[in-house]
């Protein structure tokens, strides 16, 4: 690999690092966009399967060309700007949503030995910081559209996303305590050792087992954070039509749509890294690799779609109750439990 890159390195000289980093960014973003595009059609097919109907199967064999048709359609739609909208912010909203959803992928380690764009020391903190900006896209869009429904959606989003970030952050504190690091690569490495791993059943050594309540809290908060069903009161089509997206057409809407799916994939990836061993294989005799992380991300995405097909939408007060009165106390208690566990002679994370 290095020998292959050598001529390019001499050609670009000191600018090589810029070129190489940009190439790596493209290497992350391009497959991500393909994944996002096929999640949209996958969702419709899986929902169809669960509803015992067919789903989109007309465009190409088994409907595999559906996302391309959708993309072309959205690109050629007229972009309508409400006359009373705040023009700059109206366009800034979807851009912020998409940018944030993409940026967070820079800290995801896809495999050991530096398969990561930015191996940040305080990776977990950066993850929490970047995801907390996601709400700006929604709020800015809701306000700038100058529409009652959009504004209501923005208000709901602000309250909901801030609430569930609290539970998410507290759940991650437990992960930090036992892995003794904020670096995502280190967090995965810690999960590869343990009593069960030495027996060859590695998947029992991952964080999900000792931190089972936190695993559940993180995953459900992730669903609420991405405004997916059953926590999608932000869009709530039966009462506020589509929330913050109501005034957008064409690519403005498409950006919100893609950002939502990129965020779903991100939450799946983060759950895999924090609780499901990242790129580690479930059994000792199978080799580790990027394949396992990809599989876990796909499983996470399936879980999101499965939830949507299964549960009716939560009422707004139920969402707030779950976030503040159920998740936060569970997290606080479990932080205490993990702390005591680590001080006791039965500490398994030495």
């Amino acid at each position: 690999m290095d020998a292959l890159l050598q001529p390019f390195q001499t050609f670009f000289g000191p600018y090589w690092i810029v070129v190489w980093t940009l190439l790596k960014v493209v290497g992350v973003v391009a497959p991500l966009l393909v994944l996002v595009a096929y999640t949209t059609v996958g969702e419709r097919r899986i929902l169809g399967m669960m509803h015992i109907r067919l789903g989109p199967n007309r465009v190409g064999p088994f409907g595999v060309l559906q996302p391309i048709a959708d993309g072309v359609k959205l690109m050629f739609k007229e972009v309508i700007i409400p006359s009373a909208a705040d023009k700059w912010l109206y366009f800034l909203g979807p851009i912020v949503a998409m940018t944030v959803a993409m940026t967070a992928w820079s800290i995801v380690p896809f495999y050991d030995h530096g398969w990561v764009l930015a191996n940040v020391d305080a990776g977990v903190l950066l993850y929490l910081a970047i995801t907390s900006f996601g709400v700006y896209g929604v709020i800015i869009a809701g306000w700038a559209s100058n529409s009652k429904y959009a504004f209501l959606g923005a208000m709901r989003a602000a309250a909901q996303m801030v609430s569930y970030e609290v539970a998410m952050g507290l759940a991650l504190i437990c992960v930090l305590m036992i892995s003794n690091s904020l670096n995502l690569t280190d967090i995965v490495r810690v999960q590869q050792h343990g009593l069960f791993a030495s027996w060859g059943v590695n998947f029992l050594s991952w964080n999900w087992l000792p931190l089972l309540p936190m695993f559940a809290v993180f995953l459900i908060s992730g669903v609420a954070e991405t405004n997916r069903a059953p926590f999608d009161v932000v869009e709530g089509e039966s009462e506020i039509v589509a929330g913050h997206m109501i005034e957008y057409s064409g690519m403005g809407f498409a950006l919100f749509f893609l950002a939502e799916y990129a965020n779903m994939a991100l939450v799946s990836a983060m759950t895999a890294l924090f609780f499901l061993g990242g790129w580690s294989s479930p059994f000792g005799f199978l080799p580790d690799g990027f394949f396992w992380l990809a599989l876990k991300i796909l499983a996470g995405l399936f879980f999101f779609i499965w939830l949507r097909a299964t549960f009716p939408r939560y009422r707004y007060d139920q969402i707030m109750r779950l976030g503040w009165k159920v998740f936060v106390p569970i997290c606080l208690v479990w932080i205490l439990v993990v702390g005591l566990w680590m001080l006791s002679p039965y500490n398994i994370w030495k």
């Binding site: 903190l125 910081a129 907390s132 709400v135 700006y136 306000w143 602000a158 801030v162």
Partner: peptide
């Protein structure tokens, strides 16, 4: 990063919420 998490991620969101 803490400045971003605390101020941009939480305080300013609520601020925006009120100002709007």
């Amino acid at each position: 990063i803490t400045l971003l998490v605390v101020y941009v991620g939480a305080v300013m969101v609520l601020f925006l919420f009120v100002v709007m």
